[in-house]
Design a binder for these strands. Structure first.
Length: 587
RNA sequence: GCGCCGGUGGUCUAGUGGUAGGACAUGAGCUUCCCAAGCUCAUAGCGCGGGUUCAAUUCCCGCCCGGCGCACCA
């Protein structure tokens, strides 16, 4: 059972309603998946657990932004340039190469991505570029443009191009000017979002691991890089498995088993914010059911980092020997806010008040325009600006009787008395700063997939093979199955009453009275239902039911009156099944 | 996007130039009653399009989808 867990999970997911490829009736489309009844609930439980940990427990606020955004947003974010790859295919061996990279290697052009495709094609011919793989001439081969964002038109006509967001983050960044108001202009603050993101992947693979539409759970934590420090002490004892870039480069690179605190001290984790979220993320993954023996944090290699990331560690999990990314924990510095500030009409800064107002001397000018105008005509305005700049940089220039400034290469001389030069004391109470961003970015579908795969078990009960999911009760789609032992003598009616009562107490309940009891247990085992309640003759006579635990298949009797409370305790971890097996009065 | 392999009920599969059989699952009934038991019956399938042929699920071509490898993964 150690092999092909992936295949078995996909089969189980299809059969039992966790997830399956969408649009099957129309032949299916690669890279799109639908979560079925079990999967949608599991996914939503994972999202709620994330929301609890990364929004509620951290004191951050959640927003919900549109998935379609106008083109200028992505000009600013760098996504329009960053993902627009140019590929050229070798006519001989069929291998694809990055055309811009080939041109960069052959010329002194550093950023060939910015060069139009037609020119790149010309350059390939001009420099007689050949396929790096087999040496065939590439001249005349078409250069293709790969656009990883889904494009659309907003409104009638095509006047306003838009894109489906390739990450939920931009929906947070673009609203920063307003979000900072809600945070009362105080750093640090964090904004979370759980939502869909879209990437038109060239080749979707591996079931729901690489898809074209997926759910992200992201936190953008805005901080003052000079003052704010993470509460590292809360996570310093968290044990982590690290795979630093330095080890990945070695032949036999090793993991570093350490704690968050030690890793920071030893300089393995250089960014304390990233370290902090590593320490938050690990117990969270454990909580929702990721196997910690198949989990690690891997540092991005320098060439691997996204265009915005200063440092980045991925949370990764392993299935069938393959490691894949579950989350990226990135320090994005002020990249995004600066870019949006530059490209948009708004300020993406925040006014930071000094502890004490500073009194500074400032040289100012107040040029006499009634003199400058007649004297210098059209140049007067620019001369006034030049005087202001000069005053800021070199106040001694105003010591003499005249001041000379240069405008467009010509020198102009202005009598000092006409400049309105003065040195004043100004009180500055603060400054505008661009916050830095720490971004834990989680792929929700990948967590769901991992949780199912890591929970997948096969064992034998009474000589019969059994498949079950050892899901944590917090994320299991159904908490309890309720069955009548037989559909007669009023047991079914009683079981229905009990099911309704448990639902009123907020439990996810499935009722089932079909076929034999064992079959019903197995059905629930396969979707990971942790507990099953069976109504039998004793229920009718004495008011007790059996509660059966999924992993051990052990049973114990519980009073119907205490059932809802017991099950709620089992679900939220306040009580264990062993305690039910050995009641408190045994002492 | 390229190359190789594949696509048969819900799932897993057998098979064929004369339109298909099994297992499991599902539903109804009988029986049994705390771990996928048994019996009877029922529902349900050849990815899509074109070609060859009297006849195509089968052979050929194209497309779609899946697996693996390459490339890509901002």
């Amino acid at each position: 059972m150690t092999e092909d867990i992936g295949e078995r999970v996909v089969e189980l997911a299809k059969r039992r309603g966790f997830f399956f490829q969408s649009n099957g009736a129309y032949g299916g489309v690669s890279g799109f998946y639908t979560y079925g009844p079990q999967g949608a609930t599991l996914k939503s439980n994972v999202e709620n657990a994330w929301r609890d940990r990364f929004a509620v427990q951290e004191g951050h606020q959640e927003i919900d932004a549109p998935t379609v955004m106008p083109e200028p947003v992505f000009e600013a974010s760098g996504h329009l340039d960053g993902f627009d790859d140019m590929l050229v295919e070798c006519p001989e061996c069929g291998e694809s190469h990055r055309a811009d990279h080939l041109v960069e290697d052959a010329t002194d052009i550093e950023d060939a991505e910015a060069v139009p495709i037609s020119e790149v094609e010309e350059m390939i011919a001009e420099h007689d570029l050949v396929c790096p793989n087999c040496g065939t001439e590439l001249a005349g081969e078409p250069v293709q443009d790969f656009n990883l964002m889904f494009e659309t038109n907003i409104g009638p006509g095509s006047s306003q191009p838009g894109y489906l967001r390739p990450e939920t983050a931009q929906g947070i960044f673009v609203e920063f000017p307003r979000l900072k108001e809600y945070a009362r202009n105080q750093l640090p603050f964090g904004v979370t979002q759980i939502g869909k993101a879209y990437r038109n992947e060239i080749s979707p693979r591996n079931s729901i691991i690489r898809v074209r539409e997926f759910t992200q759970a992201e936190l953008e934590h805005f901080i003052d890089p000079e003052e704010d420090e993470p509460p590292l002490e809360r996570v310093e004892d968290v044990e982590v498995t690290l795979y630093p870039a330095s080890e990945q480069n070695k032949e036999n690179g090793d993991y570093v088993e350490t704690t968050v605190g030690d890793a920071v001290e030893d300089g393995i984790l250089t960014n304390e914010w990233v370290a902090y979220y590593l320490g938050v993320a690990k117990p969270w993954y454990e909580r929702v059911g990721v196997d910690m023996d198949r989990f690690r944090f891997r540092q991005h290699l320098p060439g691997e980092r996204a265009h915005y990331a200063a440092d980045c560690w991925d949370a990764e999990s392993e299935i069938d020997g393959d490691w894949f990314e579950l989350a990226g924990l990135a320090y994005r510095s002020d990249y995004d806010l600066s870019k949006h500030g530059e490209y948009s009409d708004e300020e993406f800064t925040l006014f930071k008040q000094y502890d004490e107002p500073k009194t500074v001397e400032r040289a100012t000018v107040d040029p006499d325009m009634s003199y400058l105008g007649p004297e210098f005509g059209g140049q007067a305005g620019e001369i006034a600006d030049a005087l202001e700049t000069k005053a800021e940089r070199d106040r001694t220039a105003f010591d003499g009787d005249t001041v000379s400034v240069e405008v467009d290469g010509d020198e102009y001389v202005v009598p000092a008395e006409r400049t309105g030069f003065a040195v004043e004391e100004v009180t500055e109470s603060g400054e505008h700063i661009t916050p830095h961003v720490v971004e834990p970015s989680f792929g929700v579908g990948r967590v769901v997939y991992t949780v199912i795969a890591h929970a997948y078990r096969e064992d034998e009960v009474d000589g019969e093979e059994r498949t079950y999911l050892e899901l944590d009760a917090e994320v299991a789609p159904t908490t309890v199955g309720v069955f009548p032992l037989m559909d007669k003598d009023g047991m079914a009616e009683r079981a229905r009453e009990i099911a309704a009562e448990l639902r009123e107490n907020g439990l996810d309940v499935t009722y089932d009275d079909s076929g034999a009891i064992g079959r019903r247990y197995r059905r629930q085992d396969e979707v990971g239902t942790p507990f099953c309640v069976t109504v039998d003759y004793e229920t009718l006579e004495e008011g007790t039911v059996t509660v059966r635990e999924r992993d051990t298949t052990e049973q114990t009797r519980v009073d119907v009156d205490e059932l809802a409370e017991s099950l709620a305790g089992l679900r939220n971890g306040g009580r264990t099944f062993d305690e039910l097996l050995a009641p408190a009065d045994a002492e």
